[in-house]
Design a protein around this nucleic acid. Structure first.
Length: 486
RNA sequence: CGGGGCGUGGCUCAGUCCGGUAGAGCGCUGCGUUCGGGACGCAGAGGUCCCCGGUUCAAAUCCGGGCGCCCCGACCA
């Protein structure tokens, strides 16, 4: 990879392919500290576009942004027994500061429940103060054993929603509503199909009541948990004494929720759409939806071509398209083609003297499903709206292709354990099976096959007929989706 | 925390076994020729060889100690 030309193929070594794409597309690089990554401008722009879309959706559902501190007193984290137990192994702690040993160590937030609720409790007095609908964009730290760029890093960026409600029903509705927001975002912006549903007890958020999640299937047929939404019940309200006065004058605990998605989504995006040529970014999240590559031989041609490129750019910008003109000198067009293909830009426009003369541009697609032409000439007039339409089409095609791929790797109704073990080892993918409801059984299957229960699917994803038997042979109580996961 | 690998110019690495003037390719800078799918010529810049100690006339290389990172597994968004 020394010259940046080759890329390990996905079939040869998916993990190597992933690392090389991250590096070559200039999404991120390693930092001096183990497990931490530098998000480079091109990668950060993708995250910014994700943030912008999500933030708008949060605001539209009535949430307000706020910011709570990075540090929390260790004693605060300790307040909720299960919560502290769940996060203790992966917390980083500050014991020294200002040249002295601190009286009380500070925990670097692994999540912010323990700092938010002791503060927000003072904002809540009456049922009239509810619901409280907060969100914060922040970094968190979880000391993980094994890290991978975007998918699992020691420090990562995310948003965490935190809400408080008057009733369990309202909290549950909020939990489900935000799961729906995530699903919409993943499908419509990321073009990444997901299965939503409830997590089993082993995957439940430490200290929460119920956890729901969005599960996506990557191109190597491994599952990725792309977002989670937790109904926390009254556990945190009790731990942090968050109460309100009801209409009837009683004092009672609030019902709270939390929900989050992280920079992990960038990893999901890479592994949902990328191919052996590199990254493929859906238009809605592409830093550049269109890159213009001007072609010239001499200064006269350069001037002509750049002028045409400039007006095409203006036309595209007017049509609301993010566009970039690659006017780098001393690099020939072919090199630029490869460069932008590796970076996943949906459309490339080639504009040379011949095109200017013909009043047209050459449009080249990054993503070409069966039956589509890679290159097509297009009249320069009206190029803005033509390409806007084309980009919208590509967005849909990517989602359709990803959904087809996911469905092709989905197997339903397996009851025989031997067959399951064979299939999961040979091809991976999503397996809809029965489950007896026992944690011990879930654990054994994981030990045998590395496959976990990703989710108890919501009704719309369930099979017409739920298998009557669990893999262990016992009667199943529900259908679950199993997979090997990141 | 186990197992493996690695630390040498911005990047990928050779050189280490067998001590003797620090190298290659790519990238970078300048000039010129190129430019419709990964260009070429000429000139040039760029290094505490991870750190500390030891052996030696002499250490990237040998010895001792340390640190760090990556990859593969057990835990996790």
């Amino acid at each position: 990879m020394s010259n940046g030309k080759g890329l390990t193929s996905q079939s040869q070594d998916f993990s190597a392919w992933y690392n090389e794409v991250v590096q070559q597309a200039e999404l991120a690089s390693h930092s001096p500290v183990r497990g931490c990554m530098v998000i480079r401008p091109y990668g950060y722009r993708i995250w910014e576009l994700m943030q912008a879309a999500l933030d708008e959706m949060f605001k539209a559902t009535g949430h307000q942004n706020a910011y709570f501190p990075l540090f929390l007193p260790k004693s605060a984290l300790d307040r909720e027994a299960e919560h502290v137990e769940g996060f203790a192994p992966e917390t980083a702690m500050v014991t020294h500061a200002g040249g002295a040993v601190l009286e009380e160590p500070l925990v670097v937030r692994p999540t912010s429940e323990a700092i938010i609720w002791p503060i927000v409790r003072d904002w809540i007095h009456s049922y009239r103060d509810l619901p409280v609908l907060l969100n914060q964009w922040a970094n968190v730290v979880r000391w993980e054993m094994r890290t991978r760029p975007f998918l699992r890093t020691t420090e990562f960026l995310w948003q965490e929603g935190h809400t408080a409600h008057v009733s369990e029903e309202e909290a549950e509705a909020e939990t489900r509503r935000m799961l729906g927001v995530y699903r919409t975002f993943m499908e419509q912006w990321m073009a990444m199909p997901v299965i939503t549903g409830m997590q089993t007890d082993t995957e439940r958020f430490a200290g929460g009541l119920r956890t729901y999640g969005c599960e996506a299937l990557m191109k190597d047929n491994k599952a990725l948990q792309a977002g989670t939404s937790h109904n926390l019940g009254q556990n945190f309200a009790r731990a942090f004494d968050v109460r309100y006065q009801t209409e009837e004058g009683e004092h009672t605990y609030v019902w709270s929720t939390s929900w989050g998605v992280s920079t992990r989504l960038v990893g999901g995006l890479i592994m949902t759409h990328g191919d052996d040529e590199g990254l493929i970014i859906p238009p809605r999240l592409a830093p550049y939806e269109v890159v213009i590559v001007p072609i010239w031989k001499d200064d006269d041609q350069r001037a002509t071509v750049m002028e045409a490129g400039g007006s095409v750019r203006a036309d595209l910008e007017d049509a609301g398209v993010r566009v970039h003109v690659d006017d780098r000198e001393g690099m020939n067009p072919g090199s630029k083609y490869y460069d932008w293909e590796r970076r996943g830009v949906p459309l490339r426009l080639e504009i040379g003297p011949r095109d200017v003369k013909a009043d047209s541009v050459m449009v080249v697609r990054r993503f070409t499903p069966e039956g589509t032409d890679r290159k097509t000439p297009m009249p320069m007039a009206g190029v803005g709206s033509s390409l806007r339409t084309m980009l919208d089409g590509i967005q849909d095609e990517l989602f359709a292709a990803a959904t087809r791929r996911r469905d092709a790797a989905t197997i339903r109704g397996v009851e025989d354990y031997g067959e399951f073990q064979r299939l999961i080892a040979d091809q991976g993918g999503f397996f809809y099976t029965g489950w007896c409801g026992e944690g011990e059984c879930e654990k054994k299957v994981k030990e045998d096959t590395k496959a976990t229960i990703r989710v108890i699917p919501d009704e719309e994803f369930r099979s017409a007929e739920v298998p009557s038997l669990c893999l262990c042979g016992a009667r199943s109580v529900c259908e679950v989706v199993r997979a090997r996961a990141y």
